[in-house]
Design a protein around this nucleic acid. Structure first.
Lengths: 229, 229
DNA sequence: GAGTAACTGTGTCTGCCGGACACAGTAATG
DNA sequence: CATTACTGTGTCCGGCAGACACAGTTACTC
């Protein structure tokens, strides 16, 4: 598995040439996931778009889990190169880059949760994240925790702002808002603070990413400036 | 669907008495999910632990999606009562309570993502969250964004710290750490900052919740104190 | 060159899953 | 008593991941 993700080929010897490649498989999977959601990716479906049957895929990949892992690391790609910046700006652009990645492939939000083996690209993202924080006086653990907080935030915003192809219950953002509004109107007394908060926030939306990001960066700045004193 | 979650019964008239109840179904589902993970919850399995066949469940619930929604809101429960506290302490205990909820039913992390209809308990949690922030001078939108950031953080920490029954690839935390350590040892030059960060963070773990929480609260405090001036 | 070993792709089969649908039984209403 | 509305059941479908035996292909070894 680690070998799959890190691209160690087992050095072919005899036997027929493979008809396809792992990367080709992963790319097909990515295309399907992009277009129709992660749930549309089945071994059948992937094989159907390759000159090969379903079972042949198992020659390249131990199981679906591993396929999705390979797809994920490939789709994620590495973090884009950015000029050196002070830690705060560096971390902010890092977060925005990450957000862009998730909006490009929304299914990554599903496929990269929980305990899993990390691929080279995912590690490269982490590398750039902690790199931004070296020299701030934060300990290694604090650096890791910091980028973790930011990652959580970015993921969550991406989740709620991007519209998923397939998979979801077919609810539009409108449906949700509508149902929520209806509930809050009939049960306003049970949720007074929520009701007024919702009402006064009606128009302004979509700056959730920046809001949370600035709060977190502010918090980090406080810690860092206290640390370097 | 909204009716299901909000417990509006359709006022029975004729026909046989139902053999079971929606809540009973949900409770069975919760028990299974707690013990073996959300993926172990199938209509078959749930019906198997009730005096009823699989198809009978569809008399109580339109489909599996809705069953999981009902299970989720029920398992989540309402937020515990807490004494009134200044906003920062109130928000912190709110976050910790939320964290406890997620560790009690880890599968909630899976079942409560993305666009979905909100149940009474989920709204009650939000209510308590924004309630903590009223009177801080934050706008409604800011209040909502604030509790969203905290929720993301809590969820993410819960995700990585709790061990899931079933479902996941069967990786233990050790497996991950081990594989990571191995990779970083062979490819240390590709991830220099990450490597040193990992090395220096070796022993100390598990305060990820508090770390991020304090940073976020610090950030909010900065905003709030600037706002009330 | 012949034989063999290692490899690739295929077809078939099993056991799950969610759900559609027709049907029989049951309880309240007229 | 007949009708009507409801509940639970059995059967069936398509789709899924994957196990496994098998046939074809290629390179190495004698």
């Amino acid at each position: 598995m680690t070998e799959l993700l890190w691209g160690k080929e087992p050095a072919r010897t005899r036997g027929p040439k493979p008809a396809i490649t792992l990367t080709a498989i992963a790319e097909v999977g990515i295309a399907i996931a992009d277009a129709e959601g992660l749930d549309a990716v089945s071994m059948q479906r992937v094989a159907g778009e390759l000159p090969v049957t379903k079972m042949a895929l198992y020659r390249y990949v131990p199981g679906k889990t591993e396929l999705v892992a390979v797809m994920s690391d490939l789709a994620m790609g590495g973090p884009p190169d950015r000029p050196d910046l002070p830690w705060r700006e560096a971390l902010r652009t890092w977060a925005v880059d990450l957000y862009d990645g998730f909006t490009r492939h929304p299914w990554l939000l599903q496929s990269t949760i929980g305990r899993r083996l990390l691929g080279p690209n995912e590690l490269a993202w982490m590398e750039r994240g902690v790199a931004a924080l070296t020299g701030t006086g934060l300990s290694g653990g604090e650096q890791l925790d910091s980028i973790l907080v930011i990652t959580s935030h970015v993921r969550n915003i991406a989740q709620q702002s991007t519209t998923f192809p397939g998979h979801t219950t077919g609810l539009t953002e409108e449906d949700m808002q509508l149902s929520l509004a209806e509930i809050l109107s009939t049960e306003a007394d049970r949720f007074p603070h929520l009701t007024t908060a919702m009402r006064t926030s009606a128009g302004s939306e979509n700056q959730g990413l920046e809001f949370g990001l600035q709060r977190i960066l502010d918090g980090l700045e406080l810690l860092i400036s206290g640390r370097t004193d």
